[in-house]
Structures are given as structure tokens and as C-alpha cells.
Amino acid sequence: MADLRVKIAGVELKNPVIPASGAYGFGREYECLYPLSELGGISCKGMTLRPQNGNPPPRVAETPAGMLNSVGLQNGGIDHFIKEELPYLEQQDTVIIANVAGHTIEDCVEIAQKLEPTKVDIIELNISCPNVKQGGAAFGTSCSAAEEITRAVRQNTTKPLMVKLSPNVTSITDIAKAVEAAGADAVSLINTLLGMRIDINTRRPILKNNVGGLSGPAVFPVAVRMVWQVANAVNIPVVGMGGIATAEDAVEMMMAGASAVQIGAAIFADPWTPVKVVRGLNDWCDQHGIAKVADLTGTVQPW
């Protein structure tokens, strides 16, 4: 039995496996299969200051080894989260990660202030949603904007602050360094890669939003590469995600430099994926004589 505990931004997780924001709601939809306490943490659906409807359907298109989505941050708003979802999550004995996705710096600051007195363990500042017109990835594609919003939230929260980065940039390491300089305690990456599918019979994009975010095993190698680059560029923990579907994928992501992993789209194919990855990580460590899963982080030996 390996020691699966890891530490992110000063918060201890019982294991390094976290369902990713947007793929898991607030966990309620999966409690009938397994106790949520088996998870290291839950990254909640991205929340805005006020409720919002998201983009018109269709919002999903299948791709080879993955999918595009253009949900556009449909959510009930921060007040709804605190009143309706948080009390439930507090009962689940798992680390609660609130994904904050305000349209403006002021929105993000206000959300962080509202979260301050709550039992949320970590704030994941989402500067990488590709599906909203205001905010979202606009903050995550320029170093100065990423730095500015991170600093503003940092000054308004005492909670551990993790910033979720977009892969749709020229240099993700520069963005990572910018948010580190602005006071981020950790970074999580990657959000989805911007993509598009067209129905050749109608000549219409399948997504009503025309474009959407690509996730699933198709993006895994890109995510591993970016996690590796970022882990080598910053001194704060990296939470790796993007296409993880198996325990072996999680091992690979940790070797690339991730201290923990998030799992998104794979849950749609198999809702047991996060639990299988937890168990598989334990088995893999046992089989390879590794006492602590945390010792895997960054152990790739590059040529």
C-alpha cells in the first residue's frame, strides 16, 4: 500500500486524483456509484459572479480520441454555489477546489471575497476558458493580463491560489512565470485546446458556437509536454491535466512534473475513471517499489 498523499499549495490531498472543473459538476451525479471521499479533491464547475446560461446547443462534438465542447460556463453563480452546493461538498471528506471564472478582474475579486469565509480549500482561478467572449482565456493569453488578475485575486484572498492556464498561447512558460510572480501558489494545466468540426453535408460547424475546446486522450501528449515545460520553469506545484484516462497516464503526467492530476473528459466514457486511477496508482507504485506517490513528480529523465 503506497502513500498516496500529496500536497498542493500547502493543502494535503489524500491522493493526487481530482475530477476536473466542468467534467464533474459538484460531484452529486456520481455519489451513487462511489463515495466522493475516495477522491483527492473535486474541482467544481467554473463559477461566475452571476448565474449564466452558457452558449446555445449543440455544445459537444466528438473527435478522434476526444471531444469538443462549447458549454460557455453555464452555472448558477457564486451565491448559488455557496448556498446550495458547498454545504453538500463539505460533507464529502474531500478537498474542495472552487473554480473562479469571472468576466472581469472585479468579478474575480468579488467571488474570491465571497469565498474567503467559506470552507473552500483552494481557489482555482480560471483564466483559460475558451468558450466565453468576456474574460476567460483573454486573461490567460497575455502575461501582463494574467499577472494583473492573479495579483488582484491574491490581494483579496488568504486561501491557496492556483491558476488554471490555457494551452492556446505562444509560450505557456511565460504565462506560468507571470502568475507565479503575481503570487500564485500553484498552477493547473492544460485547459482545452481551441478546435472546430464541420458537418460537411450542411457546411455548418457542429458546435453552435462554431469553435470549442478539445479535450480527451487526443490532447494528452500536448498536456504532458506543457506540464513538463512549466514544471521546469516555475518553483510552485503544477497540477497536470489534459486527456488522462488511466493510472499509467497519471504516472506519466506526474513524471513530467505534476504534483497531482485532474481528470475530465474520460469520466464521460467511464464514470469510474477517477477511482480507477486512484487504485491503479497505488498498484503501480506497489509493483514498482515506490513508497510515496509524491516521489514520482518530475522524475522524467530527459535526453
Binding site: G22, A23, Y24, G25, E29, Y30, K45, G54, P56, P57, P58, R59, V60, A61, M67, N69, V71, Q74, I206, I267, F268, P271
Partner: peptide, 17 residues
């Protein structure tokens, strides 16, 4: 009917008006 992801209400892709 709508194009669907998770099937259980978590991913929110199968929106209808």
C-alpha cells in the same frame, strides 16, 4: 434529444431551451 456527454447532468453539454 440533444448531443450528449456525461449523460448524468455533470458536463452540461446537452442543453435545450
Amino acid at each position: 434529444e440533444e448531443r450528449m456527454g456525461c449523460g448524468v447532468g455533470a458536463c452540461l453539454v446537452c442543453a435545450c431551451r
